Amino acid sequence: MLTPTHLLFAQTTYLTACVVAAHPPTPEEAAVALLGAALPDLDSRASYVGHILRLTSDFLERYFGHRSMTHSLLVQILAGLLAFWLLPFGFALALLSGWVSHSWADMMTKGGVAWFWPARIRCVLPGNPDYRMELAKGGEMGFLVIMILVGVVMMPLAQTGKGTAGLLRGALGDLEMVRRDYDQHKGDFLFSVQVRGKDNRTDRDISGTYAVMGPWREAGLILETPEGPRSLCAGSACNWYSAHAELTRGEPIKTSTVNVTTSLISVAELRERTEALSQTGAVFLLGTAQAEGIKPEPPTLEVTADALTFAYATPAILDKLQGRSLRNVDLTLQVRHAPDASLPEQNPIKPVGAATPELLERWLR
Rank of each mutant, 00 (worst) to 15 (best):
L86E: 05
V75N: 06
G293I: 09
D203S: 07
V113I: 02
F89H: 08
T56A: 13
I77M: 07
W216A: 00
E140G: 10
L78A: 03
M69Y: 07
T16N: 15
T16A: 15
A338L: 15
G163P: 11
L86Q: 14
P357L: 05
E272S: 06
I52M: 10
P229Q: 04
L42I: 13
E176P: 07
R62K: 15
S263P: 09
R204V: 01
A114H: 08
S97I: 07
L364H: 07
P357G: 02
R204A: 05
H66T: 05
T3N: 12
N128I: 06
R62S: 10
L286S: 06
T300M: 00
V283L: 00
Y241W: 10
T300E: 07
H6S: 09
L343K: 02
D205Y: 02
E28V: 11
A289N: 13
G90D: 02
L232S: 00
S207H: 03
S72F: 09
G353N: 07
P315G: 01
I349P: 00
A276C: 01
E358R: 10
G353T: 01
V153G: 10
T314Y: 02
R327P: 04
L168W: 14
A119H: 12
V267Y: 05
E361F: 09
M1L: 14
W115Y: 13
L167E: 10
G166N: 03
V335K: 06
A105C: 14
E140R: 12
A105L: 15
V212T: 03
D43V: 02
A211Q: 13
L364C: 00
L167N: 08
T70W: 06
L172H: 12
T261V: 10
M133Q: 11
S342E: 11
G208K: 03
R169W: 12
E140N: 13
S103F: 09
F91K: 15
A211Y: 08
M213T: 03
M213H: 04
A158F: 08
H244G: 01
A243T: 13
G323E: 01
D205H: 01
C238R: 06
G220A: 06
T304R: 14
N200I: 04
P156F: 06
R365V: 03
P226V: 04
D319R: 11
P40N: 06
T274G: 01
A158W: 11
A33Y: 10
A311S: 14
H337V: 01
D306H: 14
E224W: 06
R122K: 01
R180T: 08
Q194R: 12
I253M: 11
V212N: 08
R45Q: 14
V260Y: 04
Y131N: 08
E345V: 12
A245E: 10
L286I: 05
L2V: 14
L247S: 07
H71V: 03
A158E: 14
A243M: 05
S44L: 08
A92P: 04
G127S: 11
I265S: 02
E227C: 03
R362A: 10
G187T: 07
R180S: 09
Y210M: 09
G235V: 03
D199T: 00
S263Y: 09
A276M: 01
T13E: 12
G228P: 04
V150T: 15
I52V: 15
V283C: 00
M107N: 09
G161Y: 02
I206E: 01
L326M: 05
L333F: 00
I317H: 00
T261R: 12
L167V: 08
Y63S: 09
M147I: 10
A105E: 15
M133N: 04
L221V: 02
F59N: 09
R336F: 04
Y63E: 13
